[in-house]
Every structure is written in structure tokens, then in C-alpha cells.
Amino acid sequence: MLRYLYGHDLHLYPTLATGMFTDRADQFAARLGWEVHVDANGEERDQYDALDPLYVIWERPDGRHGGSMRFLPTTGSVMVNEVFGHLTGGAPIQSPLIWECTRFCLARDAGPHVAAALMLGGGEIMRGFGIRHFTGVFDRRMERIYRAIGSWPEILGSEGDGRDRISIGLWDFTAEAQARVAARAGISPDLSRLWFQRAFGTGPAIWHKRSA
């Protein structure tokens, strides 16, 4: 299932959180060779994890981490402006209606449906919170994955060649794209909506009783 967790709530799901940070170390340090910081426990964290971001996490049936990504609004500190600002033409991206999505991570044995499920969660956030765009940094390998799950971003800027290419992408929300990733993920849109509502509340019955 998809979980939507702010950083300050991660401690409630220790297995999931540990799995996310160790799978990130495995993906970004071990497999991709990025210069990221991995601590003594084998967990990868950066300064943006300290900003209490919103994580979307795929939880496998046995409770383990299957994949995840991280959101922050571009009104505050974000990687696209602070680290990769030169790739967007020198204009900082800044709007409460544009959120940054980073650290898109898949566990080593996660199937392609997990990537699609995560994008499905991204679509729920856009629709649920009125967000117009996501922006994010991604590498060559993710290009293939985004293509495969039918959620291809507009490229705002790139640097490097071949395997080393890093790009900044922009996603917007369309009902068609959402239906496409739902089909790839093998998750019904209703179920996806249910997970989102479970995370952010469905509205208890008490509300409908007007108090005198």
C-alpha cells in the first residue's frame, strides 16, 4: 500500500523508515555511485530530510519498504534551486503550487509496478492539494522508468552525457496520465484514493451533526 508520511511521523513506522534510508543508500551510493552521505547504519540522508518533508512510501505486504519519494514545496529550501539552479536558466523555481520531488528510490527487487504506484501517489497529492506541478532531479536510469510507466516529464534542463546525464523534469497532472500509471501499477484508482484519504483523513461523521 501507499503511505504518506511527514518526516516527524517516520518514527511511527521504524521498519519502513529504516528500509527507505538503507534502500536509498543502496540505490544512490552503491548502484549509482552518487556522492551521497551514508551513515554508520548504512542509511543515506541529506539536509532536505531534516526539513520535515512529505514522503510517499510503497509498503510491501510484509511491511518492508518497496520504494519511496520525497516532497517539499519550492517556497522553501529545495535541491532544484540550491544544487541544480544552473540547469533551470538561473530562475529559481518558487511557488506553493510547485513541489519538488526528490530521492525517487526503488528497492533492489521492487518490480516496475512499484514505480508506477509511487507516481500514482504523486497524482493523488496534486489532485488532493491543488498542486499544479512537480519538479525534480533525475538520472538516466529514471528516464527509462518514467517512460515505461507512462509518466514522462518535460525536461527543463540537463547536464552530462550518456549514463551520467542528470536532468530537471517537470510533471503536471492529467487524468489520462493518472489512469495510465494506475493501470501500470495494477491499482484501482478507488483504492489509491482510499489510501490517500486514510493518510489525510476522511472526515468523521461527527462533522455532519451541526452543534446547537
Binding site: T88, A91, Q94, L97, I98, H133, T135, I155
Partner: peptide, 17 residues
């Protein structure tokens, strides 16, 4: 010499600023 998407982001950010 930019895409319309990139332009949309410029406009969105400029609007907010």
C-alpha cells in the same frame, strides 16, 4: 528557445514573486 512547459514554470514563479 524554451519549451512551453519551462515557460509555464517561469510564469508560475514570477507570479508568486
Amino acid at each position: 528557445s524554451i519549451s512551453e512547459h519551462t515557460l509555464r514554470v517561469y510564469i508560475e514563479s514570477a507570479r508568486f514573486k
